[in-house]
Amino acid sequence: MAAIAPLPPHHRELVTEQWCLSVDLGQAQDPTAIAVLQHRVVKHVRFDGKVFAAGEVVDVRHLQRLPLGFSYPAQVAELQKLLARHPLNSGCTLVADETGVGRPVCDLLNDSGLKPVRVSITTGESFSPNRGGWHVAKSLLISTLDAALHSGSLRVAAELTEAGPLAEELKDLRRKVSAAGRYQFEARVGAHDDIVLALAIGLWTCVGLPKRKPGMSGRAVGKLPPGQEPSPLSGRWTSLRNGPSP
């Protein structure tokens, strides 16, 4: 994934974008982390109509941690409220980590009509389809994140509330080689990696997920009961929320 090249003379810019809300689910031991990403793919169209790939960029528009002990139904309600806000309510891919405690929350999300793309984090170095979702190696998620950060194609605003904790989590990641000769990534003892994983899952969904086949879930538009719709967001996404709704 390459950062966007400057627009040459006598060209116009053609931009396609998608939004993704990704969530690394937890409850008692690890907090649930949420990331909102805007993925833009840019092409340059020359005066004669010839089209050139110009690169792509993923901007992290929102990072959030839910408190420890936040109930599963409350987590689902929080995601519904986020997805009901502009611009996510016009269409957003919801992706959730169903590894471990994530499976019952994914079931609740399905029951609420959100139909997330389910990702199970595995060992190894690849990904494969799994019951309408995906098995994805943690090493692939982290290496995709690392490459995007180094190329400048993944951008995180420093003023985001959880930008500091994200930087600390990245520092705390430890890479080791397994007995089988494969790279493994783990947070140091006592540290968390929930924000890193939420971001990595969302990034992989934007740039690494194969094109979905007809009928595959993953497109989510949040809806709330009449009279409870939040007003559209305006201004910077950093003002979205610093914590869960009361």
Rank of each mutant, 00 (worst) to 15 (best):
Q75T: 08
A77K: 08
L79D: 01
L79C: 08
Q80T: 09
Q80R: 15
Q80V: 04
Q80Y: 03
K81R: 15
K81E: 03
L82I: 14
L82V: 10
L83S: 07
A84N: 05
A84I: 07
A84W: 06
R85Y: 00
R85N: 01
R85K: 11
P87M: 11
P87F: 10
L88F: 15
S90Y: 08
G91Y: 13
G91F: 12
C92A: 11
C92I: 10
C92P: 11
C92S: 12
T93E: 13
L94E: 03
L94N: 08
V95P: 05
V95L: 06
A96L: 11
D97L: 01
E98M: 09
G100N: 11
G100F: 03
G102D: 03
P104N: 03
P104R: 02
C106L: 07
C106H: 04
C106Y: 03
D107A: 14
L108E: 12
L109M: 15
L109V: 10
L109A: 13
L109H: 11
D111T: 08
D111V: 02
S112Q: 15
G113W: 13
K115L: 15
P116L: 11
P116C: 12
V117F: 07
V117M: 09
V117N: 05
R118E: 15
R118S: 14
R118I: 06
V119I: 15
S120I: 10
I121H: 00
I121L: 10
T122F: 04
T122M: 09
T123D: 11
T123P: 00
T123F: 02
G124S: 07
E125I: 07
S126R: 11
F127Q: 10
S128P: 00
S128D: 06
P129M: 02
R131V: 05
R131S: 14
G133Q: 04
H135R: 13
H135A: 07
V136Y: 03
V136F: 04
A137I: 04
L140T: 02
L141T: 07
L141F: 06
L141N: 07
L141K: 03
I142Y: 09
S143N: 12
T144N: 10
T144G: 09
L145A: 04
D146R: 15
A147Q: 05
H150R: 15
S151C: 04
S151V: 03
G152T: 01
